[in-house]
């Protein structure tokens, strides 16, 4: 009796694992499949590098070029990572040196609150409070790439902080006693031994955070300006995710526009997946 129960349990859990696995892989394959038709109309090169995005035929034909969206996504996410890098590393240093174990355990949940705040709320507050500041500095409508990057940087900070703090704490546990036993100041030791040794892991965390930032939709959509132009820091731009969110509702099903949007999703998904896979391989090897 027990034996059959055990067997059922085992095969049930096994089945669900593989169902989940297949479902996830299916999602990836499906996006690819739904995107393919667009490449009959436009070449891959033109799709990725083209600068014109005219999905609806007003009499001048349609064009599907994603260059500005790709640039917009990259620009906003990279700036966000750079901004977040400073705050995150600073906070991680504080948490690993100044805060003791108990304090860390209580502070982490507070920082993780940031990761729970809905993206729309971030966009909303930025629109209400920060946009006017940018407007008073001359940015038309107050929305620009930089503003979106600032919002994004706050959103990705908790992820960088948790991973970098973990690195710092491990290294600190390894070396700090020896450093202090030599009479050397702990911040000196932190700066000259632990920080340099953490660089690789920090860079890895930053790249992963960059992927997160690239996929963020709502907050970016609300404050980036959404103009299909060459994105500049104080100018407007549009991210790939915003593009999909804004145009999917109006795209006629199974039209070229529709396929193009799926292809845009494919570009986004593929970029993030490739970076992730490469990074995980890389970090596994070096640990």
């Amino acid at each position: 009796m027990n034996k059959t129960k055990e067997k059922i349990f085992k095969y049930f859990t096994k089945a669900l694992t593989y169902i989940a696995l297949s479902m996830l892989l299916f999602v990836i394959c499906f996006i690819v499949k739904e995107a393919l038709p667009i490449f009959k109309v436009v070449s891959v090169k033109e799709f990725v590098l083209g600068t014109e995005w005219v999905p609806i035929d007003f009499g001048f034909g349609t064009k599907y070029g994603m260059r500005y969206f790709i640039m917009g996504t990259l620009l906003v996410s990279l700036i966000a990572v750079v901004i977040s890098m400073f705050i995150s590393i600073g906070v991680s240093l504080f948490l690993s040196v100044v805060a003791n174990d108990r304090a860390r355990r209580n502070i982490f949940p507070v920082i993780d609150l940031l990761s729970g705040i809905p993206s729309v709320v971030y966009g909303f507050i930025a629109l209400e409070l920060l946009s006017p500041i940018f407007f008073s500095f001359g940015v038309k409508t107050g929305n620009c790439v930089l503003l979106a990057a600032i919002v994004l940087s706050i959103m990705i900070t908790p992820y960088i902080v948790s991973s970098v703090t973990y690195t710092f704490v491990n290294l600190r546990n390894k070396y700090m006693i020896s450093i202090k036993n030599l009479g050397i100041d702990e911040w000196y030791g932190m700066t000259t031994i632990i920080l340099p040794k953490s660089v690789k892991r920090i860079v890895l965390s930053l790249i992963l955070a960059n992927c997160r930032a690239m996929g963020e939709t709502m907050a970016v959509m609300m404050v980036m300006g959404n103009a299909i132009v060459l994105p500049t820091i104080l100018g407007k731009g549009e991210s790939i995710a915003s593009l999909i969110a804004l145009e999917m509702g109006t795209a006629v099903r199974e039209s070229n526009h529709y396929y193009a949007l799926y292809a845009a999703g494919l570009v986004l998904m593929a970029t993030v997946l490739i970076i992730n896979i490469v990074l995980h391989k890389f970090s596994k090897e070096s640990t």
């Binding site: 996929g215 939709t217 995710a241 986004l268 998904m269 896979i277 995980h280």
Partner: peptide, 14 residues
């Protein structure tokens, strides 16, 4: 782990 990184809007598309 890698699917965790996929932007949520992609699942909407799916």
């Amino acid at each position: 782990e890698n699917v965790a990184a996929i932007p949520s809007i992609i699942f909407g598309l799916f």
